[in-house]
């Protein structure tokens, strides 16, 4: 498989504080990469880096062999834990937004046949995430799970080369979370997506991912906790039988997911 994204010796620093150090890795096209790690280990920074929300202090990010600019673009879709949908637009209009931006640079609105085509495409995408019965409701009227379904449909309508998920199911109840696991797995397979998901839930990571990256600090100075940054401590390729190593389970501080998976 070819590398879709490559990181070369990435460092991210905020003043004196080193968040990420010496991160070098490649993400393959079509993979489902789950990122785990304790709080403050730079998981979200890593995601924002690939999203383009912030530049690396040192190092290079390559997207399809081209250096990536530190700016969000339509080749990378994103779903955040919250605030991923526009509260002032109905479900359908939320999904149409991406199409409208692409086709109408000045008005950002479509009319006539183009509008009908965009509408149909949006409705189709909403049906794919199971929202075919909620086309004309506002996000505030929907449950958290439905809002995340909408956020996924909204991102997928642009056919991004990689879909970034930042703890997308963290705020959902366990039952809804299982439904979302099934949904994202199905979409990943059907649409041939490349997914990078940051999660707190190590069980979720090992259940969904084809590869799990664990971020943590290799070195720790108790007198200067910001002196050393986090890096990739585990990089596990999974067939669906790999279990997380006990040391990783302990580092992330989660309940043992091996019981859940086994």
């Amino acid at each position: 498989m070819s590398a879709l994204i490559e990181l070369r010796n990435i460092w991210v620093e905020y003043g004196d504080k080193i968040v990420l150090e010496r991160v070098s890795l490649q993400l393959a096209e079509g993979s489902f990469v789950a990122v785990v790690g304790p709080s403050g280990a730079g998981k979200s920074t890593f995601l924002r880096l690939i999203l383009g929300q912030e530049p690396p202090t040192r190092g290079q990010v390559l997207l399809g062999d081209m250096p990536m600019r530190a700016e969000c673009g339509p080749d990378r879709g994103v779903v955040f834990q919250r605030y991923s949908v526009f509260p002032h637009l109905t479900t359908l209009r939320n999904v149409m937004f991406g199409i409208e931006c692409g086709q109408a640079p000045f008005t950002a609105r479509l009319f006539g046949a183009q509008r009908r085509a965009a509408r149909d495409k949006a409705a189709e995408m909403l049906a794919a995430v199971g929202l075919e019965h909620s086309l004309d409701v506002y996000p505030a009227q929907m449950s958290g799970g439905m809002q995340q379904r909408l956020a996924i449909a909204q991102a997928l309508v642009k056919h991004p080369r990689i879909l970034l998920l930042d703890e997308p199911f963290g705020a959902l109840d366990p039952g809804t979370r299982l439904d979302m696991h099934a949904l994202i797995t199905r979409l990943w397979q059907e649409h041939g997506l490349t997914i990078l998901m940051v999660t707190h839930d190590i069980g979720e990571a090992f259940k969904l991912g084809t590869r799990v990256l664990a971020f943590d600090k290799r070195r720790h100075d108790p007198h200067a906790p910001h002196r050393f940054g986090a890096t990739v401590t585990y990089d596990l390729s999974l067939d669906r039988k790999t279990l997380p190593p006990p040391a990783l389970v302990e580092a992330v501080g989660d309940t043992d997911p091996r019981k859940e998976i086994a």
Binding site: L51, E71, F80, Y83, F97, G98, C101, P105, K158, P160
Partner: peptide, 23 residues
């Protein structure tokens, strides 16, 4: 307004003008 909304709009292909008038 949440920064997530602005990031999301940009990943959906919105330019500065579209972001201002639509988001």
């Amino acid at each position: 307004l949440p920064a997530e909304q602005f990031a999301k709009a940009q990943t959906l292909g919105a330019n500065s003008w579209q972001l201002a008038i639509r988001v």
